[in-house]
Design a protein around this nucleic acid. Structure first.
Lengths: 181, 181
DNA sequence: CACTGAAGGTTCGTTCATTGAACCTATGGG
DNA sequence: CCCATAGGTTCAATGAACGAACCTTCAGTG
């Protein structure tokens, strides 16, 4: 009995006529935005989400369900036998990048010491400015042209393979290589 | 027995080295971002949050506690007898505006028919662009210079006094007048 | 003086969601 | 045949949210 669609939260934000509230009904549940973040970082497989997030399996399954139903992720078979699916972020999910980027920036500026991840414009290597723009080029950088690399605040030897894969600079959206194919 | 400070969520996002996760530990709980949104809209009083959000009283009290402890709201006495406090948004809370604006934009673009609220640059009346900038002036508009007005998707005759007060155009941060002083 | 009402809460029983451990199903490899 | 991997489901225990009721302080009114 999995609830999908309109009722993302047990009780929705009923009285709210507000697109922020609408958005939060869909991505406001616990873990959901972290799943989307990982999907932007290139995580696609159930087990990779699992080990990277440390999320309970049942909750992950529910979130992937909801995100797929809302068109934020797309479930796609990547091998036939045994049948295996991966979850790939859609345009609608990619459109959450400005929100996640600014939320992360807020967290870093107000509650973290050092940056954990640094985002650069792939074309010129310049670090992104406060609004997701490239200060050198003067344009807002599309997600696919963002390179993510570890910052000084990141621990050098993480336990899970996904975190290890994210130690190397990589473009957003590009699938991660956990090296266990 | 109210928990404050470091443990905003029952179990925090423990394994996450990520400023997005840090941010979500603080503002990721149910209702929290809607309280911040209301504070940006100029809501300051317990009862105004209560009727506008339709939030359970105990939950509102807990969220105001946490947000105050994290320096996002500031509790301030506005009359002595009987003692009455209001919750005013701080710089740290105002810094969440880009996140909330982009989240609201995402919600509207993907899940709403018509805009519920429209944001304009107070100086020139131009509607804000996708990144919170004024397309006419070419600058990012500070929160205090944003005027909010109802859009076509807003119901014309809301029940609660806060929603009624928000029917008129007003600047963000400016305290709302519920007309019941 | 007694009453009423507003503001800003607290308390409490019920319901709902999250958690973590255990289990299940295909399949492929040694 | 046995084990490992990927991707789940099930279940009991815990914790958070809900909503109704209650509480306190004071101002205003008759």
């Amino acid at each position: 009995m999995v609830t999908v669609g309109a009722m993302a939260l047990g009780k929705d934000y009923a009285t709210q006529e507000c697109s922020i509230a609408r958005a939060l009904e869909i991505v406001g549940e616990r873990w959901t935005l972290l799943v989307v973040r990982d999907a932007l970082y290139g995580v696609r497989r159930y087990n990779d989400f699992l080990v990277h997030l440390g999320i309970p399996r049942a909750v992950l399954a529910a979130r992937l369900q909801t995100l797929t139903a809302e068109g934020i992720l797309e479930k796609r078979r990547y091998q036939q036998s045994p049948p295996r699916d991966e979850y790939v972020i859609t345009e609608r999910g990619i459109a959450l990048w400005p929100t996640l980027r600014s939320l992360g920036r807020w967290g870093r500026e107000h509650f973290a010491e050092e940056p954990v991840r640094v985002f650069r414009h792939a074309d010129c290597g310049t670090e992104l400015g406060p609004y997701g723009e490239c200060p050198a080029c003067g344009t807002v950088v599309p997600v696919a042209d963002v390179v993510m690399e570890p910052g000084p605040g990141l621990s050098p030897d993480p336990a899970d393979p996904v975190s290890r894969a994210l130690l190397a600079p990589k473009r957003l959206l590009e699938p991660i290589e956990t090296g266990q194919v």
